[in-house]
Each structure stands twice: as C-alpha cells, then as structure tokens.
C-alpha cells in the first residue's frame, strides 16, 4: 500500500492513548502529509479496550486500519497487545508496554489473565519490542508520563526528526508539564540505543 503509514495505538480507557495519537496526527499534518485519524469514544472512558488509528501519507481515504495492515502497533497494555496483534503487517512492529490491567471478567473470576503474553506473540512470529514504561516514567518522577515514554519509543521508528516531535508535543500541553513529558519522550526515544 504505497508509502502510507498505518499506526494503531491500543490500550485501556483512561491510559492517555488519545493524546499520543493526536500528537502523531498533528505532526504528520505539519509535515505536509495527508492524515486521517479515527477513534471510537463513547464507552471507552469506562475502562473498556480502546483503539485509535492514525494513517498518514500522500493521500489517505479510509480512516480505519484493518487486519494485517498496521505498520506499527503501540500497545499500552499486555492483554490489548494480544487482542490486536492480528492487525499487524507481517513485517510490522509491535511495541508493548508491560503493564497489566485486569478486566472485570478476570477480577470477577470469569476469565483468566494470560500469563505468557510475550511468548504467545513471539510464537505468532511477531516482531516484538517490550518495555516497562512505568519504571522509566517513575525514574523521572512523573508516573503519568507513561504515554510519552511509549510515544518516544514509537517515534524513533517513524519518519520525523526529533526537533519536530519536541515542538508538536509542546503544542499539546501546558508549559507546567512540558518538561517532564519531554524528558519521558526522550527516554523512550533513547531506549532503542540501550537495548
């Protein structure tokens, strides 16, 4: 599908997935690309699973991404990574935060949370990058900046340079929280070198 990029951000309602996708969308637009971004709100705030699609390139028609079409999936939660893994292209990359959030079906004993998520993904032949974003966010003293650590990891793989990311992130938040969020982003970006 030509030079278009398809990115999915998945997680659990309230985890900050929407901010990450709107930063990517804005940045792509500022770089002169066509962008479509789709999310389903509604019940998502109440702890349901959420997915947002961001597509950019020279010309984008459909706002949704379907199975086997995502270049990248950024998953904020382990079970959600498993749930959406089929959407990845064969050569796509899945970046997975190692946080576990139990759904009500698990809490009330109707289902069991899978213990071997990473193994399952790898056995499907998925190109997996794991990260415990919370520990990195805590390292810089802002546990809410998990989403920026994850965005930094994804951003490193995308086509835009660091300064542009920095500028777009700043535009998306008040000056008080910019500093730690940018730190978190930088941390995610640099994790690839450490790994």
């Amino acid at each position: 599908m030509n030079n278009n990029k398809n990115i999915m951000i998945v997680g659990v309602g309230g985890q900050g997935t929407l901010l990450a996708s709107s930063i990517i969308g804005q940045l792509a637009m500022d770089c002169g690309l066509d962008v479509k971004q789709s999310e389903v709100h509604g019940l998502s705030q109440r702890g349901g699973s959420v997915v947002t699609y961001v597509r950019y390139g020279s010309k984008i028609a459909s706002p949704i991404i379907e199975r086997k079409q995502a270049d990248y999936i950024l998953s904020f939660e382990k079970l959600e990574a498993l749930r959406w893994a089929d959407y990845l292209k064969p050569d796509g990359v899945l970046i997975m935060n190692e946080q576990e959030i139990y759904p009500m079906s698990v809490i009330s004993g109707l289902a069991v949370y899978p213990i071997d998520v990473a193994d399952q993904l790898i056995s499907k032949g998925i190109n997996l990058i794991k990260v415990n974003a919370l520990t990195y966010a805590q390292e810089i003293g802002n546990s809410r900046a998990v989403n920026m650590v994850l965005l930094g990891m994804l951003a490193y793989k995308l086509d835009f340079n660091y300064n542009k990311w920095e500028k777009t992130i700043k535009e998306h938040m008040s000056s008080i929280v910019q500093h730690t969020n940018l730190q978190a982003f930088a941390m995610g970006w640099n994790l690839h070198d450490r790994a």
Binding site: G47, S49, L79, L82, R83, A85, P103, M104, S105, A111
Partner: peptide
C-alpha cells in the same frame, strides 16, 4: 475471507462502572 480473529478466546474487556 479469513477465519475470525483469534482474539475471541482472550478475556473480554467490556466497559465497567468506574
């Protein structure tokens, strides 16, 4: 037409009261 998503066996994550 592909067989249904394998995710069918994963625990569902329906919305819940906060």
């Amino acid at each position: 037409v592909e067989a249904g998503n394998s995710s069918a066996n994963f625990p569902v994550r329906s919305p819940v009261l906060c």
